[in-house]
């Protein structure tokens, strides 16, 4: 397993060295190999597919332009994912004015799921499509930093140290922002309860 991983790293390193020597075509295998992860990350923060594609294109453009700055100390994937997370954060900040601010336009399945939760919380299924849509709505209401922290910490279960490395924030700042993000999340949930059931 370790041997295989070393071989893969060497392969990435060879491709990167070739690109830096002036062979841009060697960048294509890296795009093919890592695009699924970048797409999955971008889809956490953007809903429309056109926005997701814009984010991923931006990530690869930045990666290509800054490739000479990659020192090879960490795996290429880590370096790329750091770039992807920061690009997603920039996207959230650019689009924060269009954040959803109301739960009044819930679809029928979403409304039914909430009703089900109120009646019998244990019976409201977590794998239901309506639950996933509700989470998307909830996250869309958060500020960019709150959404990023909640996604990385609570949904992706990443440790604080890793979040600090991904975002470029200090560990202390991640903890402070996580505290504020949870409070913001709770405030949004309180609004659901107020708008729908009071």
């Amino acid at each position: 397993m370790i041997q295989e991983s070393v071989c893969m790293e060497q392969s990435d390193a060879d491709l990167i060295a070739a690109v830096l020597r002036g062979d841009p075509a060697s960048f294509e295998p890296l795009v093919v190999k890592y695009s699924p992860r970048v797409f999955a990350t971008a889809r956490r923060y953007a809903r429309r597919e056109s926005e997701v594609e814009d984010i991923v294109q931006e990530v690869w453009s930045k990666a290509f332009q800054k490739l000479s700055g990659y020192r090879g100390e960490a795996p290429f994937e880590h370096w790329l994912m750091r770039m992807a997370v920061r690009t997603c954060y920039d996207f959230l900040r650019e689009h924060q004015r269009s954040r959803e601010s109301s739960f009044t336009d819930l679809t029928d399945p979403e409304h039914d799921w909430l009703e089900q939760f109120v009646r019998a919380p244990a019976e409201a299924r977590e794998d239901a499509d309506a639950a996933r849509k509700l989470v998307e709505r909830l996250l869309a209401m958060l500020s960019p930093s709150a959404r990023l922290v909640i996604t990385l910490l609570e949904i992706e279960d990443r440790p604080v140290k890793e979040i600090a490395a991904l975002t470029g924030w200090s560990a202390a700042l991640v903890k402070v922002r996580a505290f504020r993000a949870r409070a913001e999340l709770r405030k949004c949930l309180r609004r659901i309860a107020k708008e729908k059931y009071l």
């Binding site: 409201a124 509700l134 989470v135 909640i150 949904i155 279960d157």
Partner: peptide, 11 residues
């Protein structure tokens, strides 16, 4: 429940 739903439905 909602965070668990998000964890169970990765993008």
């Amino acid at each position: 429940k909602l965070l668990a739903a998000a964890r169970r439905n990765p993008p």
